[in-house]
Simulated scan of single mutants.
Amino acid sequence: MKADAITEMGVIMRPGMKIRRPKSITKTSDEVVQPPVTGTIAETVAPINVTTKIYVKSLEISAQCGVYSHEFGKDRSLFIDIEIDMVSNNMVSVDDLNQTYDYDRLAQIAQDVASSKHFYLIESYAGEVAQTILNDARISAVKVRVEKPNSVKNAAAAGTEIYCTRNVTP
């Protein structure tokens, strides 16, 4: 018996598998008429909105944050996850960085905001990162998760996560 085969359409065919062929419309026994073509897919399908999720995960940055006296004047590591939703009316069909959002830019924003001042709360830091990202009109939503390792006894980390969406007025 022959092994699995992949057809031109990318379908895996297994031994003994029945093939289903499209039915044709027949007028007479010897004349086959194909169904009429009414237009291309582009003409018949309504425009769609595509949401692209772009993310950076477990980015380690250096920041000054905390409310206790021993936390002032010292850099400490924070781990950041950032996820954005970018909505467009067409898919990224061109292999071009200008058609999307550079995830290196997300990492740079996280570090720039952290370097800007001392944050008492990581919630404030996460909010400022989210607001900076939402300044780009292409972004419809952003999720920022911040972990502060070894900040709670017997825990790997403590943290916060915020999710912000752009207000859309009708």
Rank of each mutant, 00 (worst) to 15 (best):
R21P: 03
K53F: 11
Y68N: 06
T52Q: 01
P22D: 11
V94P: 01
I84Y: 08
P47A: 13
V32C: 10
T26W: 15
T52D: 04
V11H: 06
I84S: 04
G16C: 10
Y55H: 14
T28Y: 11
K23I: 05
D95F: 05
N49P: 00
A46C: 01
Y55G: 03
V50L: 15
I6P: 01
R14G: 06
I12G: 04
F79G: 00
G10R: 04
S62P: 05
A63R: 12
L59R: 08
A3C: 07
M9H: 11
L78A: 00
R76Q: 13
G10K: 05
S58W: 02
S29L: 11
G16H: 09
V56R: 12
T51N: 00
V45D: 03
D81K: 05
G73D: 04
D104W: 00
D30K: 14
R105V: 02
I41M: 05
K74C: 05
V56W: 02
N89L: 14
D75G: 09
S93A: 09
S69T: 13
R20F: 06
G39S: 02
S93T: 10
K27L: 15
Q64H: 12
S24G: 09
N90V: 13
C65Q: 07
V67E: 12
V56Q: 08
P22S: 13
K74F: 07
K27W: 15
V56K: 10
A5K: 10
R76K: 12
E31K: 04
D104Q: 08
V37N: 03
N49K: 01
G66C: 07
T52Y: 02
T100K: 06
I82S: 12
E8N: 06
M1E: 14
K23M: 06
D81E: 09
S93W: 09
I61G: 06
L78G: 00
G66A: 09
K74I: 11
G66M: 12
A46D: 09
N49T: 01
M1K: 15
I41K: 05
M91F: 01
F79W: 09
N89Y: 14
Q64A: 09
K18C: 04
G66L: 07
T26C: 13
M91R: 03
V56A: 08
T44Y: 10
R21Q: 13
I80Q: 15
I48K: 14
H70S: 11
I80M: 14
G10E: 07
N89K: 15
K2G: 03
T28K: 09
I41D: 04
E71M: 12
I41A: 05
G39P: 04
S93M: 08
I80N: 13
L97S: 02
L106M: 02
I19Q: 08
E60A: 02
M9C: 08
S88H: 03
V32K: 12
Q108V: 10
S58L: 01
S77A: 13
E43V: 00
V87W: 00
S24D: 12
P47Y: 13
I12R: 14
V87I: 07
Y55K: 02
P36V: 04
V37W: 01
K23R: 11
T28F: 06
G66Y: 13
I19W: 05
E83T: 00
E31Q: 08
T28H: 09
D102M: 03
T51C: 02
S69D: 15
